[in-house]
Design a protein around this nucleic acid. Structure first.
Lengths: 342, 342
DNA sequence: AACCTGTTTGACACCGGTGTCAAACAGGTT
DNA sequence: AACCTGTTTGACACCGGTGTCAAACAGGTT
């Protein structure tokens, strides 16, 4: 691993280390012909800057970390892809850290992690992105972060999707399919998105002048099992809902599972819809109708913002202190929903 | 971020930097009372070694990387959890790198990645773990790696599961359920595991004295869609298979999808079985009977071996140059398989 | 007391970069 | 020619650790 150092380049180009450093970092005030000499030397020697040396000198590593404890592997995977893509483009390394949201020492564990790796910045995925104690700690330590998922407070940069609108659009679509008894599975009560999803659901009813059937609202927690449980509750009601709309796909698939295990035919006897468009929606039969959340773009944007923040580059056209970007979701109609025929 | 350096500790303890370094690294030949003085100072100041400084001085980062391009998110997620657990325990950072197996510049891309991050070692997941050109490059660069998935050649450390035995056990179980026309979906032809899975399938037939129905063997590629396609082929045969056994769960779920879309009842009219026990197997209805591959343990073991290798610590009781560890899979009977009643 | 041997310790250089600051340079103006 | 001003460059120290090597020390032996 006899690697080429900045000194080797300096000698070859007949300049000082510092000048090579200037060229590498694209600093101003280097005479064009000097720059060229150095660049030639770099090319010829195949020099690559050692990121550790730089990290130490600049007190800034070139790594960011993805902190996750999300119950849906599909959700996380899609996000991860987008994040990774942005990192690769910007020559940033991506660390992974799995945490237990319920751990009482969560905040300390994350602090230790950051100290151990010296990650420059963090990407927080729900439910972590709504954990106030964590944000407090990061702020006090001066660690940058971008939050993914619903913006709860006004803290820091944030990227997510407009879940209120997504729920609204889906509900409107279901109403258009003549469903009047819509079973709804709520998201996790601790996550801000849940409230917004519920609001979209109610607003669509209000707009259509149709009352919400309150008996058909069941609590969920964004996990598969909670979808199964909620569907169990809903399918025992009379009259039974003609469609179950879950606040995320993971739960929608749970509901499908429960329906099929009871021999209820989907979509003939029961329609099912979700939100997210994770990969499992097209791996079950019937494929699930959902609102496509552009997770890839969300992850990509989140990582890009974080990286720009760290590079102290301007972030978009905005003059605001923080960036709050919301993506719209798109209705994806598949086989799990059907017009209700009374 | 005014962090405590080794110099601060040295001053407080009244010794030299080097002595503090000795204590941190648990080196021999430090007088017990000196050691204690230093340890007290470390505690009082809350000193933590800066990993970047160490990395630079030792020419050894404290990071390993997971290289992946696996079509099954469930498979990868489980593995990732185990790997991450081992990393956390050993205070190692885990980098993530997504690659395109089909990319013609795959090897160069990975080389650049390693140079950029200075990862100490790599964990290779199939199909990457069977890519000879990649292994050659890593060997020539002196980068350590542990391969996950089927051992193909005798190169380097390796952890995996005994897929031949897994396929054998599953086939034996299906035969016991009186199935005589077993549809089989092969794995990816480029991956060594595929051959072994097929061997297990055939050996179980041989042992039971039952001929393999060669017309019921279909090519798959470990992806969901290839499972759908293979099932399509198999279900068009006459006589139709009474069970479809796929070389992985991802394809088994694809087969289930195809069966259900044709209105074929599972398991009443068709049994379905897979290998891996990824999370989706319990998220579809009926839950899929499978061979549980201990992915978590495999990931954990792979990372542990790699880390020990890097620390130049002894690896297990073996005297061999390389470790080859195979885990057995366990039959998990769920609702997708049923006794054949002719 | 002089000598020997193994243990403990610290001075110093180094890993591969960057920041600061002053000197050298270039080109125009008086 | 002397002076001025902004640009270009390099010497040096530093980021936070570790490796090498020799000096200092401790304790036993002649």
């Amino acid at each position: 691993m006899a690697s080429v150092t900045i000194m080797d380049v300096a000698r070859k180009a007949g300049v000082s280390k510092k000048t090579v450093s200037r060229v590498i970092n694209n600093e101003a005030n280097v005479r064009p012909q000097t720059k060229e000499k150095v660049q030639t030397a770099i090319e010829e020697l195949g020099f690559k800057r050692n990121p550790l040396g730089m990290a130490l000198a600049k007190n800034r590593s070139l790594f960011i970390a993805l902190l996750a404890d999300n119950p849906s592997p599909g959700y996380l995977m899609n996000l991860q892809k987008g994040i990774l893509q942005a990192c690769t483009e910007e020559h940033m390394g991506l660390f992974l850290y799995d945490c237990q949201y319920r751990s009482p020492s969560l905040v300390e564990e994350i602090q230790t992690f950051v100290e151990n790796t010296l990650a420059d910045g963090l990407i927080l995925v729900p439910p972590l992105s709504d954990k106030i104690e964590l944000l407090d700690m990061l702020d006090s330590k001066g660690v940058s972060y971008v939050r993914i998922g619903p913006k709860d407070t006004k803290r820091g940069d944030f990227v997510g999707s407009n879940t209120a609108k997504a729920a609204f659009d889906m509900t409107e679509y279901l109403i258009k399919l003549k469903h009047r008894h819509i079973g709804f599975i709520l998201g996790h009560p601790d996550q801000a998105s849940s409230k917004r999803t519920e609001k979209g659901f109610r607003d669509a009813h209000a707009k259509a002048g149709i009352p919400v059937d309150e008996s058909l609202i069941a609590q969920g927690y964004y996990t598969h099992q909670s979808g199964v449980d909620a569907a169990m509750t809903l399918l025992n009601k009379t009259p039974r809902p003609t469609v179950i709309f879950a606040s995320n796909d993971e739960m929608a698939v749970g509901a499908l599972c429960e329906a099929q295990s009871r021999g209820i035919k989907v979509p003939e006897e029961l329609s099912i819809a979700g939100i997210d468009d994770i990969s499992i929606t097209t791996k079950v039969w019937p494929n699930i109708t959902t609102m496509r959340q552009p997770l890839n773009s969300i992850g990509y944007t989140a990582a890009s913002i974080l990286i720009r923040r760290l590079q102290k580059k301007p972030i978009g056209p905005s003059e605001e202190a923080f960036v709050n970007q919301l993506y719209d979701c798109e209705l994806v109609i598949r086989q799990s929903t059907k017009t209700f025929v009374g």
